[in-house]
Design a protein around this nucleic acid. Structure first.
Lengths: 237, 237
DNA sequence: TGTCTAATTTGACTAAAATCAAACTTAGCT
DNA sequence: AGCTAAGTTTGATTTTAGTCAAATTAGACA
């Protein structure tokens, strides 16, 4: 009876991971079936609605999350309210880290998000017997560092026009848009784009208008955008 | 005879680490004596003179390094030559990573540098029996990510004046200057400061002049600087 | 110490993006 | 469908930092 019960729970957990849409790209993908069994039992899935705060700067770092669905913006604030988005996290991306004592940024859901959480302390315990999880987290962290450094180049050295072009290409890439005229939804409001690119909302709007006038992009209702001249956008970026 | 010989070699390697000035802050600090013995045998120390290239973007990622002495600038370039320094690496900092197939930036010595190198492939092999090295590298990578994100906020949202103030405080911090009027050498040329802060050399120069005129800092020959009004500089940043 | 070059500073002017303000559009709600 | 608030666009103007040019200073080396 107890035996059956245990088996039932474990298989439930594994089912959860087996049916997980990011199981092949999340940091847990490195685990074998045995590790995953133990690991999945530690996870809690939570759904956030648009604009809900996930992490708050300065709070104790208790959880890391793996994004299952949706997009999360990671941002920092100056005292006077100026905001800079330092990362956009997509499905499969890791939220937070297992090292720092506190969160050093805010994380907020853009649209509805589904996130799989783990307690930092439990991951660290788990890693004692499954140290490969460190390599997996390192791989994700390394990607984030690489992205952050690309963005440093953009913020420090690119013009507004180049920034907008780079932003559009980033979104096309994250949407795996393979077409020569990729079409996707821009998940950010103009103000958020401005906070991502280190610009003002007016500059963003003007540059979008220019691209539309020059037929480089088309914009439909609901922030759907089509990149008409991909190569031109690439050369601008 | 053979026995003595082995012992001699091993103790030489360990001596090298025992006398290493960054042994308590480098990523190898996590290793116990046994691990260190094996690890130290894999290392090669190299000295670079000012402006020497250490890594080149696009080249195969063969080595990671731990800085023993000196400062290294990590930078990226746009096609037209615009440059952005994405990181300044100090003694104890890790250069490169063990994940990517290629370097994605340039690394260049600022002044004379002493660097302890390891082959990426050998670190990965070593980690199979010493997986804690992953955690140690993760910790260093995580620091770099945190620094990069602080810099994203600076580049995206701070004014030239605020950038210069932040830069001076960063240097004071890296020099462990505990005094109320910290004094240290600015290791970068004006052009490099500009490339670090996303500014032009003229803007950097003008803002330094302003700070000097307002008696917030003093500058002596040889780029030695004294922060006269630390609190004011902090509030500006 | 003097000479030469590189680095830095300063000035005048320009350009890019920010600010301020208003009009217009979209999306959600009753 | 009409109302409302939020979001976006556009225009006029200002500000900041960039550009171009020249003068000055610092550093390396004979």
């Amino acid at each position: 009876m107890n035996q059956y019960n245990n088996h039932f729970i474990e298989s439930l957990n594994l089912d959860k991971c087996n049916s997980c849409p990011v199981s092949t790209i999340s940091f847990c993908t490195i685990l074998d079936e045995h590790g995953l069994e133990e690991f999945s039992a530690m996870s809690t899935t939570k759904i956030y609605s648009d604009s809900e705060l996930i992490f708050t700067e300065g709070k104790v770092n208790q959880y890391v999350g793996s994004i299952i669905e949706g997009i999360v913006k990671i941002y920092k604030l100056l005292d006077d309210g100026r905001q800079q988005i330092v990362s956009l996290a997509f499905p499969g991306d890791l939220l937070g880290n297992i090292i720092d004592p506190e969160y050093s940024y805010f994380a907020e859901a853009i649209g509805q998000c589904k996130i799989c959480f783990y307690q930092v302390s439990r991951i660290n315990n788990f890693a004692e017997s499954n140290p490969l999880i460190y390599r997996s987290i390192l791989t994700k962290t390394n990607e984030q560092l690489s992205d952050a450094r690309d963005w440093l180049l953009l913020l420090g050295r690119k013009s507004a026009k180049e920034k907008i072009a780079s932003f559009l290409l980033l979104l096309a890439d994250r949407n795996n848009a393979k077409s020569t005229q990729p079409r996707f939804k821009i998940p950010l409001k103009r103000q958020e784009i401005a906070d991502f690119l280190g610009l003002t909302i007016e500059t963003v709007s003007r540059n979008f208008s220019n691209f539309k006038n020059q037929q480089i992009i088309r914009e439909q209702v609901g922030h759907m955008v089509t990149i008409v001249d991909f190569n031109l956008l690439k050369s601008i970026s």
